[in-house]
Nucleic acid binder design. Sequence first.
DNA 1: CAGGATCCTTTACGATACTG
DNA 2: CAGTATCGTAAAGGATCCTG
Lengths: 119, 119
Amino acid sequence: MKKEAHINATPVCKVRMQAISDTMSLLSGKWKFHILGTLIEGNTLGFMDLLREINGIGTKMLSKELRDLEMNNLITRTVHNTKPVTVSYSITEYGKTLAPVIDEMANWGINYRKAIYTL
Amino acid sequence: MKKEAHINATPVCKVRMQAISDTMSLLSGKWKFHILGTLIEGNTLGFMDLLREINGIGTKMLSKELRDLEMNNLITRTVHNTKPVTVSYSITEYGKTLAPVIDEMANWGINYRKAIYTL
DNA sequence: CAGGATCCTTTACGATACTG
DNA sequence: CAGTATCGTAAAGGATCCTG
C-alpha cells in the first residue's frame, strides 16, 4: 500500500533484480522452459509434435504458451497450407540466446538429483 | 513377434526436462531468485534487512519463501538470543552453486533490455 | 490438425491485524 | 524483531467439448 518514499538512483543490485524479473516474466509458467528446450533440440516441430514431446501439457496450455513465446520473438509460427492446415514452430535466433540459461537450469537440476541420492 | 520397437529408457532430453522441472520447483514463485540473489551478495542478513532489500515483498511471502529455501538447504536460519529475538539468514555452500543459474538469468535479462531499446 | 471456448479447481499472492 | 493468522483476489492450470 505504501509506495516509494524516495527514489534512489537504481544501484547495481537493483538492476540485476530487475533483470531477473524481466527474464522470469518472459519465462513464467510451468511450460515455457520445456517448450523452448524442446524446440532448441528439435528445431522445427508441429503442434502435435510438441504435445507429444512435452509430457503432461494440454492443448490449451500449449497454445497459450506458444502464443506468449511468439509475441516475445522467441519462437516463430508458420502455417502451411496443407489439407488440414498444419503449423510448425521453430526457435528464433534470439530465442537461442536463452540456451545458456536453460543449460544452467538443466545442469543444476541434474546435479541436484545426484546430491539428493548421495545424502 | 516384435515387441515395442522403441521404449527408450528415458532419453537424454527427458532427463533434461526432469532436471529443469526440479530446478524450477525449488525456485518457483516470484521471490526466491531475489532472496537468493540478495543473500549471495549480502551473505548474512536479518529478516528486516531482507524485507527492506527486496522491493515489494511482504512478511508473509518472505517468511514462507525463507522456509522453503531453508527446507531445501539453500539457506540457513540462525536464531540469536538477543532481547527481542533476532534471526539471520545466510546462503549455504550448496545454495551458492546456484550462482551461475542466477547470473545467467540476470545477464539475459540485462541484454533483453538492451535488445528492446535498440528495436 | 490446430486450436478456441467453457468451466472449474487450485495455488499464488497481497493487505491487514495481531503476538511472543 | 520476526514472524503467524485471517481474509480476499487474481492468476495459473487442467479437463472436456467444439470447430474450421
